[in-house]
Nucleic acid binder design. Sequence first.
RNA 1: GGAGAGAUGGCAGAGUGGUCGAUUGCAGCGGUCUUGAAAACCGCCGUACUGAGAGGUACCGGGGGUUCGAAUCCCUCUCUCUCCGCCA
Length: 424
Amino acid sequence: MLTLKFITENRDDAIRRLNKKHFADAEKMIDEVIALNNNRRSTQKELDDTLAQINQVSKTVGALMQSGKREEAEIAKAETAKYKEISRELSAKMDNLAISIQNLLLQIPNVPKESVPEGTGADDNVVEKMSGINPTFNFEVLPHWELAKKYDLIDFELGVKITGAGFPVYKGKGARLQRALINFFLDEARNAGYLEIMPPTAVNEASGYGTGQLPDKEGQMYHCEVDNLYLIPTAEVPVTNIYRDVILSEKDLPIKNCAYTQCFRREAGSYGKDVRGLNRLHEFSKIEIVRIDTPEHSEESHKEMLSHVESLVQKLELPYRILRLCGGDMSFTAALCFDFEVYSAAQKRWLEVSSVSNFESYQANRLKCRYKTAEGKTELCHTLNGSALALPRIVAALLENNQTPEGIRIPKVLIPYCGFDIIK
RNA sequence: GGAGAGAUGGCAGAGUGGUCGAUUGCAGCGGUCUUGAAAACCGCCGUACUGAGAGGUACCGGGGGUUCGAAUCCCUCUCUCUCCGCCA
């Protein structure tokens, strides 16, 4: 969430930038926050003064009792009664104000950076870069779900039997390809300086709130009600929460973590051709990269993350494009976000395989993730994360783009990881 | 699942109703000494809100209560540890 300091000191700027995100009622909500906060401040002053009175009288009571002046002590005791009544009312008022402010702040999205383009939806995203060669075929190409069946790589029906739609079963070379990609992505991340983390895939409520999946996306996560745990939709949740309520030292930044986990998404409301095959799953594998950084360096970190992700799709020899998301298409919490898409030759469409975002201090404020500067000041960190990469759509593109009459060719970089160079 | 113990500052660990926001040790920071380092010695060393500042207020797992006054007493919730049971 945005900080009160930012909102109160940059009212007009905040409203203008929220409008870029096409956030309705920006002005109304910002002004309400400011009004509530002013009220909160004056109420707190009153409350603090009242409590100070009580504390002071209490001290004299103690002193009087010790010196045996009982009657005077009794008089002093009686005096606190009226202050107590006042403080009770004031603290009730304070609690209400604090809750109202918190509720409002949770509803206000992050403000986009200046470099975010104007726009209302996916069509307004700016293509930053397009690279790689779209494959051409002189035979009839099959979509990946048919290739998966033809070569017995992925069994969607079996997944339905065991669990349900969106939980595919990978078999033989299909399973080995999964493991190869996971290891390849993890090795690449480690070589780029990321510390590998293997976190739990179920998290508690506090972690869900920490990274902002709760309360907004409650319905999108699998919830184990008996123990009140949530299956993670991304490794971002457990990994970023490592730094919840932590004050880091400036010399430790940027922190660079990577993690492979299974990810679970209910995808309530999804249907149609977008969910065919591997395009949208309830459970999938993903390698996530996470950074915690200083405000001064986070932009640089973001660039490094983008070139890391770009190197992955390049090594996999996939045609790709990088989109700079417009204000209207960005997520609630991002300040700047780039999407990577790979071209899927049989489906003839772009598939999103990575989203690399800078959240600036928005997420850190909720997480209370701070760092001590060299001068000893405590400041909010910036947090960033990105997929590097999510497997299913990469697999979809690899299968479709690399199909030949002889079989499916494995990109050179993956051959040592797979242990085979063609699927036939 | 059964029984017991516990939750205090980055860590360890005192504190059982009145200058306790908290003794002490370690770690950290600054300094003296040293060619440099170590050792020794001296000083500093939680977070947040509020105030121009001095300062004020809150926080000893969370919430509630008793009291003029609570880290300390009571209730409640959560979590952790130990032992037993079950088990990958």
